[in-house]
């Protein structure tokens, strides 16, 4: 449904995104993750035809976002970070206006507007002026606006910002229900949100894609790198140096109580070698256990976005 290839965009001389490529299948919800200023919004703006790319190409439903912009726009619904609301209009009038410029058939307009108001639960506010709505309701009007022309693709830039916990759950449920008929790209900082709503995620950092996979694979892949905890009865400094010299060990971190945290290379079991090294030196091995539990998406995210080294998952 969406193909993005080698997308690059410069603002003046600063690159906002560089060589971003990913694909989204029809009916899928893709989580788009990254720290602030990583290039999420820029990518979304290119996809929605708001900005042209400096190089590379993006296709939505088979149409090029640059050359067939109008065809793309008809098929895409976009909720920017700041919901684009005419605050002096009523909810209903606003949605009717959006339906008009999105090219909804005049005979269907009323039905569509009522339907999206129903879906986003704003029907009872339809005659209120948008300026007077709370932030949560404004966000929902923004969401309704993005869906009013029943687009194939929905691009949502942080859709749950400013909502209270109940509303967040409702919106997530709503987004989940939309999948299947709609293809959705969802950007967010809230990682559990991605785990809950998305099948796949793209993690972007400093303008580059650093990971893209299903959520399950992503957390498993990172689990390959083992973390062990040892308690060794022996002089601290030599023990640490010895442990670090064992083949396959990446990092040793000494903590109090003669405990050492050892990080090993991905997919390599170094427990045997470690035990041997300790015993050969005549120290006492009091404890050796694996500290590995399920990596959360949060850990994956932090790993990928804070250190450049782990950027090739």
């Amino acid at each position: 449904m969406i193909q993005v290839q080698n997308l690059t965009r410069y603002y003046g001389r600063t690159p906002a995104i560089q060589g971003v490529s990913f694909e989204v299948e029809k009916g899928e919800i893709l989580g788009f993750l990254g720290p602030n200023a990583a290039g999420k919004t820029t990518t979304m703006r290119i996809l929605t035809c708001y900005l042209p790319a400096t190089s590379g190409s993006a296709k939505v439903a088979g149409f090029d976002v640059f050359n067939q912009s109008m065809d793309v726009r008809r098929r895409i619904g976009y909720l920017p970070e700041q919901p684009p609301l005419y605050t002096d209009m009523t909810v209903k009038a606003y949605l009717h206006f959006v339906a008009k410029i999105k090219g909804v058939d005049p005979r269907e307009r009323k039905n569509r507007v009522n339907e999206v108001m129903e879906k986003t639960d704003i029907t009872e506010r339809q005659d209120q002026v948008i300026r007077k709505l709370s932030k949560g309701f404004k966000q929902r009007v923004g969401l309704a606006q993005a869906m009013v022309h029943n687009p194939d693709v929905l691009v949502l830039d942080e859709p749950t910002v400013g909502l209270d916990p109940n509303q967040i759950i409702e919106v997530r449920q709503l987004i989940k229900n939309l999948a299947g008929n709609h293809t959705i790209i969802l950007s967010t900082h809230i990682l559990p949100e991605v785990e809950m709503t998305c099948q796949r995620a793209v993690i972007i950092s400093r303008g580059r894609v650093v990971a893209q996979d299903t959520i399950a694979n992503m957390t498993q892949q990172k689990r390959g790198a083992g973390r062990l905890v040892l308690q060794v009865d022996g002089p601290a400094a030599p023990v640490r140096d010895k442990l670090a010299s064992v083949a396959g060990v990446k990092k040793v971190h000494a903590s109090s109580d003669n405990r050492y945290e050892v990080e090993s290379e991905a997919g390599r079991d170094v427990r045997r070698e470690l035990a041997q090294a300790v015993v050969q030196n005549g120290w006492g091995l009091l404890e050796l256990r694996s500290k590995d539990k399920d990596f959360t998406l949060e850990e994956v995210f932090l790993n990928l976005t804070t250190e450049e080294g782990g950027a090739n998952a």
């Binding site: 703006r45 035809c49 708001y50 976009y78 920017p80 684009p84 609301l85 090219g103």
Partner: peptide, 13 residues
Amino acid sequence: RQGTMELLATSPI
């Protein structure tokens, strides 16, 4: 200022 340019610019218009 109110970000609605983003709505117009991404609509088929």
